[in-house]
Design a protein around this nucleic acid. Structure first.
Length: 112
DNA sequence: ACCCTGACACGAT
DNA sequence: AATCGTGCCAGGG
């Protein structure tokens, strides 16, 4: 983790509750890195997300941003379904599942 | 140092 | 609903 922004992103990722999702851009925003959605994508692609809820991150439209039909994409979909996340075709119903954390509380959690 | 690619997003067409 | 153009910038060659 050479870069601190990367750690911030991973820290927020760890806090997303089951049954909820965030977009890459939102994840970056919550990590204090507005406008850096691609960094969030890079982190998920690069870092070891093994013990983290990487599957709770989807594109802003609700689509799974992995090659359609790939093993990873299927895995992500299955994990979300298992948490009760509802899809409308290939998209997550964002209206219903997008995580909207209380910013004050989030800041507290990250201060530790 | 330069160039290309990409698990992104948004506004305009 | 689908494409396209543009901004973004870390990784990898």
């Amino acid at each position: 983790m050479a870069h601190s922004g990367e750690q911030a992103i991973l820290s927020v990722l760890a806090l997303i509750p089951a049954g909820n999702v965030v977009s890459y851009g939102q994840l970056a925003d919550l990590a204090g890195l507005p406008g850096r959605a691609r960094l969030a994508g890079t982190v998920l692609r690069t870092a070891d997300t093994q013990a983290l809820p990487w599957h709770r991150v989807v594109s802003s439209s609700g689509e799974i941003s992995l090659p359609a039909g790939s093993e990873a994409a299927q895995e992500q979909r299955q994990r979300l379904l298992a948490e009760g996340v509802v899809f409308r075709g290939k998209r997550v119903n964002m209206k219903q599942h997008q995580w909207r954390p209380d910013l004050g509380a989030l800041l507290m959690l990250l201060e530790h």
